[in-house]
């Protein structure tokens, strides 16, 4: 037991955040303002996600934290340790065993279940922000469903790159109503957002919470003649030979050597344990990610 209140935040704050979460679930994709607290970590480290997780955690939960798919990078390790100390909850690296998964920029490869919650860390919750700097105006645009501007961004992509070059934070329309920023996940993950688990999004610096309830329709915006495509590197994982997972490219040396590995470290590990071997699988170390490379 620690000297902290359970999950660091005081009970009133957690209540306030839960109310925001419930409102977000009731209006899928709508950005609910909330009184974001100072957390013992800098903005940009996932303060929004941490507050949402703190409000959602119960002592019986098992927490998993990933950063770009990896369980063992600095951000993921610190947040996991933060909750181990302040909430005393069990933690895991296995997607299957987690009841709450806090993530930065990825959705795990394993299909999520109804008894799971995934919490996204969001840097900039407003999908219209880069085209329209005024908050008063973007709120009005959401209220009146004026989303033409979102397509202007995609139009610009095609006119400049020949295809929709937006590859992460790809805007989606939720349940036919609100256009939402799915946080900077790769667009490869967009189709997974129609899932059984509850999806919560927290933006600490911007003080916004939004949510997607289970089995909600999430459509990636596109043009009739340039339909949405969930793309990934055209390779198999060099460690576990998976062809259906999102890959990170790792530079090996100064001579152009490189390898592609699953960004979801838990998925990759499970496959290797099951006997799958990729191109470089036999002599590669069992941990991956930036530290390993």
């Amino acid at each position: 037991m620690s000297d902290y209140n359970f999950a660091y935040l005081d009970e009133q704050t957690k209540r306030m955040i839960r109310r925001a979460i419930l409102k977000g679930l009731a209006i899928p994709g709508y950005q609910v303002p909330f009184a974001s607290r100072e957390m013992p970590m800098p903005y940009g480290w996932g303060t929004g996600g941490v507050q949402v997780s703190a409000a959602a955690l119960t002592p019986d939960d098992t927490l998993k934290v990933i950063d770009q798919g990896a369980d063992d990078t600095t951000n993921a390790v610190s947040i996991r340790k933060f909750f181990e100390r302040t909430a005393g909850v069990a933690t895991t690296e296995e997607t299957e065993k987690a009841s709450i998964i806090q993530t930065r920029h990825r959705i795990p490869e394993a299909t999520l279940r109804e008894d799971q919650i995934i919490v996204y860390q969001v840097p900039i919750p407003e999908p219209l922000r880069f085209l329209e700097p005024r908050e008063t105006e973007t709120r009005k645009m959401h209220a009146l469903e004026e989303y033409g501007l979102m397509h202007v961004k995609l139009y610009e992509d095609i006119s400049q790159h020949g295809s929709i070059a937006t590859s992460y934070a790809y805007p989606v329309k939720v349940e036919g109503r609100y256009v939402m920023d799915p946080s900077p996940i790769p667009k490869f993950d967009n189709p997974k957002m129609e899932m059984a688990a509850i999806q919560l999004f927290g933006a600490g610096r911007e003080q916004r919470i939004y949510a997607v309830p289970p089995y909600t329709k999430v459509v990636s915006l596109d043009f009739e003649d340039y339909p949405f495509e969930a793309t990934k590197a055209d390779h198999a994982c060099d460690l576990c030979a998976a062809e259906d997972s999102y890959l990170d490219e790792v530079i090996m040396d100064d001579a152009g050597g490189r390898m592609f590995v699953c960004s979801d470290t838990d998925y990759c590990r499970a496959r290797r344990e099951a006997g799958h071997v990729g191109r470089l699988g036999s002599d590669a170390p069992l941990t991956t990610g930036p530290e390993a490379a």
Binding site: V152, Y155, E156, S159, E224, D225, Y226
Partner: peptide
């Protein structure tokens, strides 16, 4: 919109009223 191409500037109103064919 000074940061959007000429084509995008002209297309904005079309997209605002629902045109979705690039």
């Amino acid at each position: 919109r000074m940061s959007v191409s000429a084509g995008g500037n002209i297309g904005e109103r079309l997209m605002a009223v629902g045109d979705r064919h690039y």
